[in-house]
Design a protein around this nucleic acid. Structure first.
Lengths: 224, 224
DNA sequence: GTCTATAATCCGATAGAC
DNA sequence: GTCTATCGGATTATAGAC
């Protein structure tokens, strides 16, 4: 039954999330589910298949996080929300993030199944869409959207990895600050100058007055 | 004897580099060295200790790569050479790169030994030094040098990781192109505008004439 | 210092009874 | 569909003879 597969997968998530990668064995998994090991093979071909489903699950949740801010009013808001979703996911589910970005070798598979690769592409595409929007409305400088998306993605991914490996000597709050500063630095260099100037103006206004002017200032695009 | 430790480490490198992470067992290692497994425990406390030495070795080689271009004439040349060294190392020794940036959990250790953390800090410092130089001579915009160093590092690290996990769907040559383009995009946004303009001029001159003017144009800093 | 032998675990996967 | 029992293999690490 599909019910059993679901509960096996749920237990596999728990096990992986608590004991990590090597901690996920068919025996332990069976004990967690409440059956014996051989029973698992009725639902999954083997450990590989369980792992693959875990990776699928991670991709699904990740995409949910990314899409969380999709109803934001402007392209740049949607972009920033997606970025926040990215970081939230990475920080709230470090092990899922880790398993998503584990190569096939580390997963003990010959190759990543096609459907998982597709999910990866969907994420890539989502990211590029956010960039495209920002470029069309003149927030970002004109240029190769895929390239810009890659630059931004690599930066986020690298930041997360360095933090998760303990190379940044800071806690989560500190990392969020670092991430925000670094992201602003990067994004600032990719923005159109006139938009950057307008942004600076707005920031100055906001710090002087205390009002909510910022929200509607973008749909009347600067360039597009 | 130290000789034996050295030859064990050398064999451990071979084994790890050919068979990967899980392929490095004390038994296989012993067979490779030409002794039996228990003999290894005279020189290493266990598998952990061998791995730690591997990580040390990787750090040493990595620093060599970074320092390769240290005799370049100008700060920005030294920066670019270090960046090339970074990419060369990652591409020529992917497994060493991988083991360097493996968290303690994946290495099966409770914590990264202090001396290894120090080596990591040295690399971080080297990177920041390159940034500092470029900032002092006015190539890079004024700002937090550590922050800028982190932004650049995260970007490089992220690019390498995405490539090595097969997310970029390209070969090594293609990756080098992507990396160069993305690096230029990032670096361009962090440069001083007047320097960027001067760089554009130089590029124009260079494409028109065929001469070697570029080298001496930097020590007379634009700003510093 | 190195060996043989072995302890003590763990693993994935399967055969066959029920 | 689930069980018991088991195969066949791996691993780290240690005890004790030489």
């Amino acid at each position: 039954m599909q019910d059993q597969r679901d509960s096996i997968l749920a237990c596999a998530c728990d096990l992986y999330l608590s004991d990590g990668f090597a901690g996920l064995s068919m025996r332990k998994l069976a004990k967690e589910v409440g059956v014996t090991a051989p029973a698992l093979y009725r639902y999954y071909d083997g450990r590989e298949a369980v792992l693959a489903d875990l990776v699928r699950q991670a991709h699904r949740v990740f995409l949910d996080y990314l899409r969380r801010g999709l109803e934001a009013p402007t392209p740049v808001d949607r972009f920033l929300s997606a970025g926040e979703g990215y970081i939230d996911f990475a920080l709230e589910h470090p092990r899922w993030y880790a398993i998503m970005f584990s190569g096939s070798e580390r997963l003990g598979m010959d190759a990543i199944p096609d459907d998982i690769q597709s999910m990866g592409l969907a994420i890539h595409q989502f990211w590029n869409d956010r960039v495209n929007e920002c470029m069309r409305t003149g927030v970002l400088k004109e240029g190769d959207p895929e390239g810009v998306g890659l630059t931004l993605w690599a930066h986020s991914h690298g930041m997360v990895q360095l933090y998760q490996q303990g190379r940044l000597n800071t806690d989560e709050a500190g990392f969020r600050r670092l991430m925000k500063a670094s992201g602003a630095r990067l994004f600032g260099g990719l923005m159109n100058d006139d938009y950057a100037a307008r942004l600076a103006e707005l920031a100055a206004e906001e710090s002087a007055v205390l009002s909510g002017v910022g929200a509607a200032s973008e749909t009347d695009g600067v360039k597009g």
